[in-house]
Design a protein around this nucleic acid. Structure first.
Lengths: 168, 168
DNA sequence: CGACAATTGTTGTCGTCAACAACAATCTTC
DNA sequence: GAAGATTGTTGTTGACGACAACAATTGTCG
């Protein structure tokens, strides 16, 4: 629909130039309305925006964003982790995790417990309230995942997860 | 897939933690993600971050970021578009496009020409300098795309583009 | 043992980006 | 011609990644 919108107000000429032979070597000259189509980053970015928006909307009733969900999930699966460990695992900076945990702690979903072995670090745990809340979040997240399936197809989603498995 | 992921969460599954007496400091690299695997959004987000970082690095010598590149590409392929049309095509807000164009115009890559038919809007064009610059950007972008191929495989990249074709 | 380096959590700044809201100038429509 | 919509612009808010600096603590090594 975006493409048609553009085409509607563009001059009606100059479509794709089919010259250039069959060469695959020079993508640089592949100029046209769809020059961005061949770029993986663009497609991935648009897809990621769509996914996040659906996630935020689907988890909107519980006010949980993707990053918060990932933090809760990791802590729930590995109780006692330090902030550094969680940050490293999720690929976020420990400086940013501080604010995320502040918010989640204010909502009584997680708690920081001073570690005895290393008095610099905090052992992260879900509260009882956090456990039951996370269970609900996961049900909603599963619903969101079904939206993704409905959008790109069940097999495509599975294939995509396989392709990108190395990044998790 | 999501069903198994969700089911796995009901069990606390404290695998290697729980060692209260053992003073073995775990290295935080082998933290179980468990439920996070199986979420398309998480994999896509991590992949998108990787792609953008490689793009920014590969196009670093010319100081062009992904969004700037997409704007230049669309204008180059469709000279005379209005800002509204470009914004709609790229899925960015017109408010944000203003700053992007300010920057690109300062660098003499694009120019805003007051439209004669609609005196509210600007017709966007590449400058001559912008055209030659974009050619170079596209060569570097193609190099970046080869990095993506090297990362996930040529066929996987092609398949991924096919799966996400609807989002471009 | 003690000086020095490294780590952990924290605070702060900077820049990117999406989402809104408001506004003047300019069409569009009735 | 008046009311309403559109276009570009400015501004604000909040999430987010990247850095830098710091105190407290731990680890290392001479």
């Amino acid at each position: 629909m975006t493409a048609s919108a553009v085409r509607a107000e563009t001059r009606p000429s100059l479509r794709k130039r089919a010259g250039n032979g069959a060469a695959t070597r020079d993508v640089a000259d592949d100029v046209g309305l769809d020059a961005l189509v061949g770029h993986a980053g663009y497609a991935v970015r648009r897809f990621q925006i769509w996914i996040f928006q659906d996630f935020i909307k689907t988890l909107g009733e519980v006010d949980i964003r993707p990053t918060q969900y990932s933090v809760l999930t990791v802590i729930g699966a590995n109780p006692g982790l330090s902030q550094m460990a969680v940050a490293k695992r999720l690929g976020i900076e420990r400086a940013r995790l501080v604010h995320l945990l502040d918010s989640l702690e204010r909502r009584k979903l997680v708690k920081r417990i001073k570690s005895k072995e290393d008095r610099r670090s905090h052992a992260l745990h879900l509260t009882a309230q956090g456990e039951t809340a996370l269970a609900k979040f996961k049900r909603l997240a599963a619903e969101h995942e079904r939206h993704v399936e409905a959008k790109i197809g069940k097999e495509n989603r599975a294939h995509l997860l396989r392709i990108l498995a190395g990044f998790t």
